[in-house]
């Protein structure tokens, strides 16, 4: 019963604690349900002695008051203990800090490099394996909720508030997450991926991520870049190293290196890139990007080629 996005596939300490708690809860619930059904069975069809026993007010007091109080008190203590373990342990001093901002309907992600410089990205969060990562969660518009079940429980992103969430990935891998608070229109299409990399690999990736965008390699890419700029894409999207410096939509400096586009709802193929440019409103109704049907077929493939080359 494991999937890409399941709380039964815990890959972080908090998720693991909760999975254990869940197991206890499920077994406990099964036992209680069995007791109730059995009691009901005996009440209807049991021997007269059994029925006399069940019919006494004492049975009600024992089964309906004493037993629940004892069981619930124990459970509450256990639950509070798990909670304490999650909230009361401070993050390690070498913790990685990443800002994540929920927007309708994608995730703005910002890292800080060694010099404290802000490196912006979107919809894909890369983290080092084994190191504490503290996510700073904000919202730019409505309430969203950050949830990657394999790593931890969810935390809401609320306008005017800053929440934090500590995650640790135990092993390398890709962990899918999804917005868990209804945020209007395309709420269903607001996913993200957390990619956990070994520490060394992560360090080199982060260094590369912070650099300027790769230069357009061939003629087509160059033409694509000019079209990208002339069509006004840079008013909303930034590509570091060009005059595209928009802050409205996702930063596209490394869009070609991402696994998915449209907030982790479409594989980052050239076809999908092209479809999103021309028909994004159909793929993700209501999203902030207008359809750009101003390109001819060749122009469109040039723009897509340029974007795909941004690795």
């Amino acid at each position: 019963m494991t999937g890409l996005q399941s709380m039964f596939a815990p890959m972080g300490p908090e998720a693991a604690l909760i999975a254990d708690l869940a197991a206890v809860l499920f077994v406990g619930a099964a036992v209680v349900l069995t007791i109730v059904v059995a009691a009901l069975w005996f009440a209807m069809l049991g021997s007269s002695a059994a029925r006399r026993g069940l019919a006494a007010e004492r049975a009600v007091i024992v089964g309906g008051i004493v037993f629940p109080i004892v069981a619930l008190a124990a459970l509450l203590a256990y639950g509070l203990w798990v909670m304490r373990a999650s909230v009361a342990s401070p993050a390690a001093s070498n913790a990685m800090r990443i800002e994540v901002t929920g927007e309708q309907w994608w995730w703005r992600v910002a890292y800080r490099d060694g010099d404290g410089r802000r490196i912006e990205s979107a919809n894909e969060i890369r983290i080092p394996v084994g190191r504490d990562v503290v996510l700073t969660l904000r919202s730019a518009d409505v309430i969203h909720s950050f949830w990657v079940p394999s790593l931890a429980g969810k935390v809401d992103m609320i306008p005017g508030r800053v929440n934090t969430l500590k995650i640790v990935a135990k092993q390398p891998g890709v962990y899918r997450g999804q917005c868990a608070e209804y945020c209007g229109g395309a709420h269903a299409l607001m996913a993200l991926e957390v990619v956990a990399l070994p520490e060394a690999e992560f360090a080199s990736w982060l260094a590369a991520e912070g650099a300027q965008a790769t230069d357009a390699a061939g003629e087509t890419e160059r033409q694509g870049r000019e079209l990208f700029l002339a069509a006004g894409c840079g008013a909303c999207h930034a590509i570091r190293g060009t005059r595209a410096d928009g802050r409205i939509g996702p930063d596209l400096t490394r869009v070609g290196a991402r696994r998915q586009i449209a907030a982790a709802t479409l594989p980052a193929t050239r076809e999908n890139l092209a479809r999103f440019i021309v028909d994004g409103q159909h793929l993700k109704p209501g999203n902030g990007m207008p359809p750009f049907r101003v390109f001819s077929a060749e122009e469109l493939s040039a723009v897509v080629a340029y974007l795909a080359s941004l690795k």
């Binding site: 730019a140 700029l229 069509a231 006004g232 840079g234 008013a235 928009g246 409205i248 902030g288």
Partner: peptide, 22 residues
């Protein structure tokens, strides 16, 4: 433009360097 209000810069499509269809 105004990023908070999601208003892109006018001139990125309406200046002389922009597409001739604008």
């Amino acid at each position: 433009g105004d990023a908070a209000a999601e208003i892109p810069a006018c001139i990125s499509c309406h200046d002389r360097q922009a597409l001739a269809i604008y």
